[in-house]
Computed example of a mutant assay.
Amino acid sequence: MSEKDILLQSIKDFLTPKMLKYALLPFIISIIVMYILFFVAAGIGVEQLGTMHVESSQTTMQNGIPHTETLEAELEGSAIMKFLMSYTITSWLATFFIYIIGGFLTIYLSIFVAIIIIGFLTPFVLKELHLRHYRDIEMVGYSNPIHAIFLAIKYSAIMILLFFLLIPFYFIPLVNIVAINIPLYYFFHKMLTFDVSSSICTKEEVKQIEFFNKNNIRVKTLLLYLVSLVPFAIFFGAIFFVIYLGHTYFLEVKKIRNI
C-alpha cells in the first residue's frame, strides 16, 4: 500500500461514526483540563503582580554640593494593574504578552495533555482497525500499565531536561523556533510510537521496524507534530494520528510475518 493510500484510508477510517466518537473524548477532556490550567496559571500570574516595589532617585546640586533624594513606594493589590493600564503603551504591552504567552503555553500544554489522554484510547482504536482491515494479523503487544507509566515518566523527565539544556538557544532568532519544539516533539514521538507499537507488535518486531523504517516513521511523526501546532488541531486530530500510525505498523508487521 502506497503512502497516499495509507493516508486516504486513514481519513476514511477517521470519519466513521465510531472513530469520531473516540475523537470527541480527547477534545472534551483536553478542553476541560486546559481551561482549568489556564485559569489557575492566570490567577497565579495576577497574584505575583500583586506587589511591586518602585524606587526612583534624583540628584540635585545645591551650592555645589550634590544631594540625592530617593523615593520608594509599594504598589499592592490591584494598584499594579492600574499602574500598567494607566498608560497606553504599558497597557498594550501587558495585554499582548499575556495573550501571546498564554496562547503559546496553551498550545504546548494541549499537545502534552492530548498525548496522555489518547494513550488510554489507543488500544480501542487499534482494535477497531484490526477488525476492519487486519484480522489476519494477531495483535500481540508487549506492554503493561506499569511499564507504560514508567516510560511516560521517563519521557517526561527527558523532555523537561531538554527544555533546560536548550535554554541558550531560545534567545537566537529562528533557531529558537526549532529549539523550543525539540523537547515536546521528542515526547510526542516517543509516546505516540510506543502507544501504537506496544499494542500491535512484539519487542523484536518493534526493533526491526525501527531499524529499517526509523526515518520514515520520524518523518510521519514530525508532520503530525507540525499539524498539532495548529490551534485546536490536536484535539480533533489525536485519534487520526493513532489511525495513521496504526496502519503503518500493521502493514510493517504483515511484511515481517510474511502474511
Rank of each mutant, 00 (worst) to 15 (best):
E3I: 03
E3H: 07
K4G: 03
D5Y: 06
D5C: 04
L7I: 07
L8Q: 09
T16R: 04
P17T: 07
K18R: 13
P26H: 02
S30C: 14
S30M: 06
I31G: 04
I31T: 13
I32D: 02
V33H: 01
M34S: 03
I36D: 01
L37V: 12
I44E: 03
V46F: 13
Q48Y: 14
G50L: 08
G50S: 11
T51M: 11
T51V: 15
M52H: 11
H53V: 13
V54K: 12
E55A: 12
S57N: 07
S57K: 11
S57I: 05
Q58P: 03
T59A: 02
T60K: 09
Q62M: 09
N63R: 10
G64L: 04
I65Y: 02
P66F: 02
E69T: 11
L71N: 09
E72S: 10
S78H: 04
S78A: 10
M81G: 09
K82W: 07
L84Y: 07
T88Y: 09
A94E: 03
A94M: 13
F96Y: 13
F97Q: 07
I98E: 04
G103A: 12
F104G: 14
L105M: 15
Y108A: 13
L109M: 15
S110Q: 08
V113A: 00
I115M: 13
I117R: 02
I118V: 13
G119L: 03
F120T: 11
F120A: 12
T122L: 03
E128T: 15
E128W: 08
D136F: 08
E138F: 10
G141L: 04
G141P: 08
S143G: 07
N144P: 08
H147Q: 14
F150E: 10
F150H: 14
F150I: 14
A152G: 11
A152D: 05
A152E: 03
I153V: 15
I160P: 13
L161V: 15
L165E: 07
L166D: 03
F171M: 14
V175P: 11
V175K: 08
I177M: 14
I180S: 11
I180A: 11
N181T: 13
P183N: 09
K190V: 09
T193C: 06
S197K: 09
S199M: 06
C201I: 08
T202W: 02
T202L: 06
E205H: 10
V206T: 12
K207E: 14
Q208T: 15
F212C: 12
K214D: 14
N215P: 08
N216Y: 14
R218N: 15
R218Y: 06
V219K: 14
L222Q: 01
L226W: 08
S228C: 14
S228D: 09
I234K: 01
I234H: 03
I234F: 04
F235P: 00
F236K: 00
F236D: 00
F241D: 00
F241Q: 02
Y244W: 11
L245I: 08
H247Q: 07
F250P: 01
L251W: 00
K254N: 01
K255F: 02
R257D: 07
R257G: 10
